[in-house]
Design a protein around this nucleic acid. Structure first.
Lengths: 143, 143
DNA sequence: TTGTGATCTAAAGCTTACTTCAAGACTTAG
DNA sequence: CTAAGTCTTGAAGTAAGCTTTAGATCACAA
């Protein structure tokens, strides 16, 4: 079962040019070619692309993804390196989530701030409020 | 209490050139200048920068951050717009966290995969494993 | 007053991750 | 066999978000 670059791109929701770019950068080492030179993607290539997508969505630069792929191509001798990479990326994601959680708290405060201002018709309501008027979770954002 | 651009940059852990760039892009509308033209940051500017940091860390482009700042400058007439912006950003963060959560699951699987391969000394162990050998949470990643 | 180090501006440069382009080749339906 | 649609390549272009550079100015201490 083979797919062209266009079919593959549609399945993944990306542009065909993106897949060609990844290929050029060495991220797709196992994609076969037809006699005429056209790329022939297999289902296995799809799972490579899912891995690439995962690393990309968690902020890994293309060059580092290539390094990971290179480790995969080298086989069992590089298992420890591959583990180190996915493990450190896992920790990076945990840090990202913690940071996003903090940002979410701040945005929750901002939503409350503008909802309150909207009800009052003016932001100056917040100068008149005392700490008691502010939900406890938001108090550390004021002043 | 005033700070120079360098002091401010140090406090925020960014380059001074970044703050000058933000200023040029119109993200810092309230920064005063000394007689000689040097920027004089106040504590209030710090809280603007914290807001900018929040929007930036949650993926908002500089141009959209500027639009938000512009709404702030326009005053009470734009409270609804400001609420709409922070509220939609809040939802964007929730989506980002959900996506990261999915990616984390995949990375957890990859960690397990390579830990198992490392113990066995070869990735081919995974071809020999049956579904029962795979922790239930990871089963949907195989084949 | 004169260094010295930080700051100023505008403009150019850099990096990442693609996207677009041009010209030609492949594939497939009719 | 031909036409339409998709594919190929390398090279150039794009956008975002800074960073660097150059030459001038500022602030403060000796």
């Amino acid at each position: 079962m083979f797919y062209t670059v266009g079919e593959m791109a549609r399945q993944l929701g990306v542009a065909a040019s993106t897949l060609r770019y990844y290929d050029k950068e060495g991220l797709l080492p196992y994609v076969e070619r037809s006699r005429g030179g056209l790329r022939m993607f297999k289902d296995e290539d799809m799972s490579w692309l899912k891995t690439i997508e995962c690393l990309k969505k968690t902020g890994m630069p293309i060059k580092d993804i290539k390094r990971f792929i290179d480790c995969c191509v080298e086989g069992d001798s590089r298992i420890a390196d591959r583990l180190a990479i996915v493990s450190s990326q896992r920790e990076a994601v945990i840090r990202q989530m913690a940071e996003l959680q903090d940002m979410l708290k701040m945005l929750n405060f901002k939503c409350w701030y503008y909802e309150t201002a909207q009800k009052a018709g003016t932001c100056s309501i917040h100068q008149q409020m005392t700490a008691d008027d502010v939900p406890e979770e938001f108090r550390h954002y004021i002043k």
